[in-house]
């Protein structure tokens, strides 16, 4: 058996790859569902119903998808330029911290300027955090994978320090959480009696902006060139280091925005369990989307649906909720294999 590159990839194959990968992942994880003693069709029916079956379920899934779209875009933008930002989790938390800090009464701005200021500040915070690893990579050749990963832990400890120290809510009954943001700093709700908020619209706008940037601008072209072959890009006169740093700044901003949106749109204050791994989930989203911004929206809804649906499944048939994490991880691995089958065909001999 050997792999032979395809001359051209039909569009249907590219679209079928994530669907096939997800189907394969669900089939593999059925073994775990069976281990827990639950009936597989019933468990998966509960999952689908819990994710999409009612108005509440659907809005919960979309609410959960909102930060995942943004972290997915953050990963997609960076990976296109082969900049391995695995630190979206940390950037998200720093963005959230800044948003909770500025939105909690520190800034006295009229309502319509407060929200954008808080969100932009959150994005900037994420951006600045990733600027460190980006400069270390381009100036000193320090691998960004490890630095971004390790910064996740540093940021989480920093957030914990702030929440137990200067930013601790005096009315918080001793819990390590920040004071709530001002009502004027909150994003509006999109539908009554749900948690869906305007952050979703922001995330969709961000996806559109990223799509325009990657497909229609010089910046996007240069990032693709650097990701494809940095040496060739350098010969063509593309400033490789600057493209890397610029890409990192955009990627960090998207992840920071995710954190700011979670605080101002959903929670209203900051705690240490703001993100159940949205940063790492973003990597899965980006890969399922094959780094395409529109795909990231669809993939984020899928990943969010798995998590929301698994809660319902877990309540119904007593499968541990960690099944969601397993399904998402297996989907990522199946997707990797699927991308290979899209690019190559299997030949005998």
């Amino acid at each position: 058996m050997r792999l032979e590159p395809r001359a051209s990839v039909p569009l249907t194959l590219g679209l079928l790859a994530p669907v096939g990968a997800v189907a394969a992942a669900l089939a593999i994880c059925a073994a775990l569902v069976a281990w827990s003693g639950a009936s597989i069709p019933r468990a998966y029916a509960l999952l689908a119903e819990g994710a999409l079956g009612s108005r509440l379920a659907l809005t919960e899934t979309l609410t959960r998808a909102t930060p995942l779209i943004l972290t997915g875009l953050a990963a997609a933008v960076a990976f296109r330029a082969r900049f391995w930002n695995i630190g979206a989790e940390g950037q998200l938390y720093l963005g959230a911290l800044v948003a909770a800090w500025l939105g909690g009464g520190l800034l006295d701005l009229p309502g319509w300027t407060l929200v954008p200021t808080v969100l932009i500040a959150g994005a900037l915070a994420g951006s600045l955090l990733l600027a460190g690893p980006a400069v270390l990579k381009t100036r000193f050749g320090v691998d960004e994978v490890v630095t971004t990963l390790l910064l996740n832990f540093v940021v989480l400890l920093f957030v914990s320090m702030m929440l137990e120290g200067p930013m601790k809510d005096p009315m918080g009954m001793g819990w390590p959480q920040s004071a709530p943001v001002l009502p004027e700093a909150e994003l509006p709700r999109l539908a009554e009696r749900t948690r869906l908020h305007a952050g979703l619209i922001l995330a969709l706008l961000a996806a559109a902006a990223v799509w325009v940037m990657t497909a229609r601008t010089v910046w996007g072209y240069e990032a693709r060139a650097v990701g494809g072959n940095p040496r060739a890009a350098a010969f063509a006169g593309i400033p490789v280091a600057w493209v890397m740093v610029r890409t990192a700044l955009i990627s960090g901003a998207l992840a920071g925005l995710a954190g700011a949106v979670e605080v101002t749109g959903l929670k209203g204050y900051l705690t240490l369990d703001l993100s159940p791994g949205f940063g790492y989930g973003g990597i899965v989203v980006a890969m399922l989307a094959q780094l395409h911004p529109a795909g990231a929206v669809a993939a984020a809804v899928f990943v969010a649906g798995i998590f929301v649906g698994s809660d319902a499944m877990s309540r119904g048939v007593a499968v541990p909720t960690y099944i969601a994490d397993v399904i998402v991880a297996v989907s990522l691995i199946c997707m990797l294999v699927a991308t290979l089958l899209v690019r190559f065909r299997l030949r005998k001999g």
Partner: peptide, 10 residues
């Protein structure tokens, strides 16, 4: 990179 992240998540 991505395979490794996948293995860690799994």
């Amino acid at each position: 990179h991505v395979a490794g992240i996948g293995v860690t998540l799994l």
